[in-house]
Amino acid sequence: MPDGTTTPIVIASGLTPQELEVARLIVSALSLEVAAEEIEPEAPLFNEGLGLDSIDALEMALAVSRAYDVKLRSDDERNHRIFSSLRTLTAHIEKHRTR
């Protein structure tokens, strides 16, 4: 960056405002090194992709519960879809959020 005062450039990754908000929540809850804007909306969150693991899953559940009052569950097949990417997770939150 030429000087330290310019606004960060939003990478043209096609994040919706809601996805960006969830991405910021994840980055801050998990202390990730990546910028929220750089998260690929359709890339896997776990293993390859962002490289999250089961410790992160619990932290993420906690953060999502606090921010949106949405309870994540692992009791059905939907879970694999919900966590498959930032896009699917955001869609799940948008559908179930109460705040």
Partner: peptide, 12 residues
């Protein structure tokens, strides 16, 4: 028998 991972799963 079932998997219980997230807090809601465990409590239910």
């Amino acid at each position: 028998a079932g998997e219980a991972f997230f807090p809601s799963d465990v409590l239910d």
